[in-house]
Nucleic acid binder design. Structure first.
Length: 428
RNA sequence: GUGGGCGUAGCUCAGUUGGUUAGAGCGCCAGGUUGUGGUCCUGGAGGUCGCGGGUUCGACCCCCGUCGCUCACCCCA
């Protein structure tokens, strides 16, 4: 009659983020929000799920993510929906739907879902922060977006990261290049690695990204993207590279850089962290997607953006430094120790908190010693002692918990002046 | 989807060739004479040894299965 409760746990590849780790997340997201506003971005929140077509059209129906990693499901109304595997497609869908005035600059923070086997730095639900700019193909925007990410990493305290960059060309010159590459690969198909001998034709660009020696050998002698993009794209790319150089943002040209989503055109980039060993060292990436809005049914609109994985950024940060991020002040101002037995703390705390003072307390009428321990553990700056004596005298005792000197670390204050006294002590 | 390693208290881990009531440290709770934390001392709570089956007189230990964690391949953040 009383069934054994099941031991539920977070699904495979997902994680609960609780303290003290959640403080790192809070810091990182707050810093990103701050950075985004400084660059003129507004926050965009879009649904976690979309019509599956948004992602199929966006990231490409043949892409690895779309074919075998998406969480696709049918809702009760028979609609075929998918959990977002990345941020860009939804934001661009929102742009197409609402047609905000351009340039539209939006930032986001969102979970992303991909059905893969989890491993270090790879999860079925991970979280991304990113930005998108729609409505201009000015190379200055490419530079701004890349630079923002670059500066953000530095503000996070990262030091060992690199920017890899490439130009994919626009649809026409890229198409011509793919044809060229396909012909080339066709002539050398038997020399490719085992896997690509079979599938090189479906997406020739992927072969460029293959890490197997066989494929590298073949493609090294073959045509590379930057040499075959049209004059306009070349000019655009040069402008981007030039400005990045002027700003001191160190970009490494990587002609093999081909990202996993099909929507990219022209400027394409990736950030890798050297502190992360193994295959999961990409902490962020992005690029231009000048055809995406159109593919999602909108007017032709240029766009560019980047996304970064929060988990990987924090892993990188932890690998580079022992010190946690402490950009936000999240220490308690005071801890109320109430031994009156009549719960005087409730009213006192309401006064303190209403005045903007961060305050907490113990519950359950615990002993003074126990409450003092709790005060110490809480990290609060001051303990506000309120016992029978203080209650009778109409005052409180304020104790500086950082001081070791008993005599000088305590003072009394009239009960009515608690807020102002604490405020004054805090500004010292 | 394929393969390797690992599942013992909240956490980090011991547990001798299979042998009685499964241990430690940290953390948590309570005390150390009646109002003071961070050190110290004492005590306490907390575990169906991931789960299911098998071998055995006897299983945390051996075997099989399963689930989970983890790492790698693939791909990506």
């Amino acid at each position: 009659m009383n069934p054994q409760p099941q031991n539920f746990r977070a699904p495979v590849g997902t994680h609960d983020v609780i303290g003290p780790d959640s403080a790192q997340w809070e810091n990182l997201i707050a810093l990103f929000a701050e950075t985004a506003y400084r660059y003129g971005f507004e926050l965009a929140i879009s649904p976690l799920f979309e019509d599956v077509g948004v992602f199929n059209r966006g990231i490409g129906e043949n892409s690895e993510v779309a074919t075998k990693e998406m969480y696709v499901f049918e809702d009760r109304g028979g609609r075929t929906l998918a959990l977002r595997p990345e941020g860009t497609a939804s934001v661009v869908r929102a742009f197409v739907q609402h047609q905000p005035t351009t340039p539209w600059k939006a930032w986001y923070v969102t979970p992303a879902f991909r059905y893969e086997r989890p491993q270090a730095g790879r999860y079925r639900q991970h979280h991304q922060i990113g930005v998108e700019v729609l409505g201009t193909d000015d190379p200055a925007v490419d530079v701004e977006v890349i630079t923002m990410a670059w500066r953000f990493f530095a503000a996070l305290g990262l030091t060992r990261y690199r920017l890899l960059i490439n130009s994919m060309g626009h649809d026409e010159c890229r198409g011509a290049y793919v044809k060229l590459l396909r012909d080339f690969l066709g002539a050398h198909a038997s020399e490719l690695c085992e896997d690509h001998q079979k599938v090189w034709s479906e997406n020739p660009l992927r072969v460029l990204d293959c890490k197997k020696p066989a494929c590298i050998d073949v493609t090294t002698g073959g045509p590379m993207l930057p040499d075959h993009i049209c004059d306009d794209c070349r000019t655009h790319f040069s402008a981007v590279l030039g400005s990045l150089h002027d700003l001191g943002v160190e970009a490494t040209l990587n002609p093999r850089l081909v990202r996993g989503f099909d929507y990219y055109t022209r400027t394409t980039f990736e950030f890798v962290a050297d502190a992360l060993d193994g295959a999961q060292n990409a902490i962020g990436g992005g690029g231009r997607y000048d055809k995406l809005a159109e593919q999602l049914g909108g007017k032709p609109t240029s766009g560019i953006g980047f996304g970064c994985g929060i988990e990987r950024l924090l892993l990188t940060r932890a690998a580079e430094s022992d010190r946690p991020l402490e950009l936000l002040n999240r220490t308690l101002d005071c801890f109320v120790v109430d031994t009156t037995g009549v719960d005087s703390a409730t009213v006192l705390l309401d006064e303190l908190r209403s005045a903007g003072i961060a305050a907490d307390r113990a519950y359950d009428n615990r002993s003074m010693k126990s409450q003092m321990k709790a005060a110490d553990r809480s990290g609060a700056r001051f303990a506000v002692l309120l016992g029978p004596q203080e209650l009778a005298a109409g005052e409180v005792t304020i104790r500086d918990l950082r001081s070791e000197d008993f005599a000088q670390s305590q003072q009394t204050a009239p009960r009515n002046d608690v807020v102002t006294t604490i405020s004054n002590l805090l500004t010292k």
